[in-house]
Amino acid sequence: MAQGGGVGEYELKAAFLYNFAKFVEWPAAGQQEEFTLCVIGGNPFGAALNPLSSSPVRGRAVVVTRLSDPEEISRCNMLFVDALALDRLPVILQRSRDAHVLTVADIDGFTRRGGMIGLVSEDNRIRFDINTRAANDAGLRVSSRLLSLARRVLGDGTSGTAGAEGVGSGMEGNRP
């Protein structure tokens, strides 16, 4: 497919983030006016996330916020974890699980480490893995339709994904 060619990688990933929000259901309690998308670590998207502000998700306006302190995670609905925040990953994941925040990252082995959706590049395409247990633990429900598109789904008792993880980690080295 050629969708990665003309469009920048992070522009596509920004669209993926936006679409993920449509296939995941958050607990009804504690809903705010805005849908808050947070980015922690560096900002690989640049301005690619800006268009998202104009298109609402589930009737709610999208607000993009950069975080530096994991303690602020509680006001987010979705959190993109940049590779620069890898060292604080356990805390981030811990905070996110408590605050019902969907975590997405393009870090190798993110889902195995407890992340919910991990973006991977494969055959010049962007695909994703999903850790349903992590999502369930955070009180989030991932649509089966999204699951059917995932490269791998973890946490539902299937063990045949370990070999494939090696392939994904092999590609991790290519990432800048």
Partner: peptide
């Protein structure tokens, strides 16, 4: 086919 289109998955 909406998710497949949304996530650019031609196979699906």
């Amino acid at each position: 086919s909406a998710p497949a289109v949304a996530f650019l998955d031609p196979y699906a």
